[in-house]
Nucleic acid binder design. Structure first.
Lengths: 223, 223
DNA sequence: CATAACATGAATGCAGCATGAACGAGACCG
DNA sequence: CGGTCTCGTTCATGCTGCATTCATGTTATG
């Protein structure tokens, strides 16, 4: 999951960024509305976290502009409790959820996950694909009821596939959202990790579409 | 456990603060409603102790405002007034428990602990995790019935882990609630204390999740 | 059948973690 | 008021597990 964190306070950005990274989220940071605006229009993120108190204009203005321009990105807004009237303004500007300061970083992570999950059309926090169950909050997986232990990177990869399922996900999409680096064509990191996931989940669960990418399935080939 | 003590009488604040500190509680003090209001909106506490007789307005007003703004912090109210009507007003303003002056500091500590415990969803004062039993009031621990002697800091660390269990607790969260200082990234104090706790409790009881933090478990690996 | 795309076992290097030992401050006791 | 002891913290070192790369085998496709 790749997220844009729009926060001008360096200390807060650092703390929150670390917490999110610890939860397996790839974080890119913007310190101003203008910077965020540029990034939102040039990169693809799974969600954005937007502090309303920015140096260059009220966050709700930027958000409103994005919505007016058809940018559907899920947005989690951070705001001070004292200014709760902002809440109404924020929601009407197009915020998808709110967290008020001060917050536990854990809560931000929790809500962020819920937001991304819902944006993919999953109402329940546990994604079920065939006999697999992926808990979006703990990152834990069970196969036919038995817990499967994954490494951090494996969990990130599976999370992305599970959210996207049954869509086919290309390597470049995975490179961008799970590895956060320019896709070095000589690297087969993704292939290797997919291979490991297959071994742990059962090979049938990850389907290869030659030349297109991978797809997470229930493990049954529907003739 | 980090607590905000709102008390304008310096002598009383000092006495109560020391008693709480002696009980392993990290105490921050506010001498007025306004100061408390600011702190409550900018920091995170496990609970607040609120004297109703404040220089700048009835404590129930502040409390009512916090509740109206969605601040769910557990609040223990101190009052000299013993009339039932005040009590009712306090409860309806959102107090979670009451202590009437004069009080024994021990009672405040006792009720505070109960309050924090309940806020974490534990009905019983003794938290049981596998063969461990942690008494929230005495801070004492037994493992399979045998008493384990902990130092003050170890007890604080274990208390936080026990309250949070089976959630994973990050290092930064521990730094904030158990050490009450900005997390110096170069310090490995937490690692060391966890290591010591492990030696006393048995290594299996504290699970490490690489890159995420620690988790208190029953000591059995759910294979 | 040739070639490109994919799969996977094994090797490697590094970041995060564990822990023994030393240090210093404060508490307690004489 | 001085000595001793306990405990919290830091430092240094060794270890573990994991992400990544490499090399080689396998499968699709024209």
């Amino acid at each position: 999951m790749k997220v844009l964190l729009v926060e001008d306070d360096p200390a807060l950005a650092e703390a929150l960024g670390e917490a999110l990274a610890g939860g397996g989220v790839l974080v890119e940071r913007a310190a101003s509305g203008g910077e965020a605006d540029f990034l939102v229009r040039t990169e693809t993120y799974d969600a954005a976290i937007l502090d309303l108190g920015l140096p260059d204009g009220d966050g709700t203005r930027w958000l409103g502009q994005w919505r007016a321009d058809g940018i559907a990105l899920p947005v989690l807004v951070l705001t001070a409790r004292t200014r709760w009237a902002d809440k109404a303004a924020g929601f009407s500007a197009g915020a998808d959820d709110y967290v008020t300061k001060p917050f536990e970083t854990a809560e931000v992570l929790f809500r962020l996950r819920a937001l991304v999950r819902r944006s993919h059309g999953h109402a329940h926090p546990v994604l079920r694909i065939g006999d697999l169950a992926f808990d979006t909050h703990t990152g834990s997986v069970t196969r036919a009821g038995c817990p499967v232990s994954l490494t951090a990177q494996e969990a990130r990869l599976l999370a992305y596939l599970a959210h996207a399922a049954p869509r086919v996900v290309s390597r470049s999409e995975l490179a961008e959202h799970v590895y956060d680096r320019d896709h070095e064509p000589d690297s087969n990191v993704i292939d290797v990790q997919v291979s490991r996931l297959r071994r742990k989940l059962g090979a049938a669960h990850i389907e290869t579409l030659r030349g297109q990418g991978y797809r997470l399935t229930g493990g049954e080939e529907a003739g």
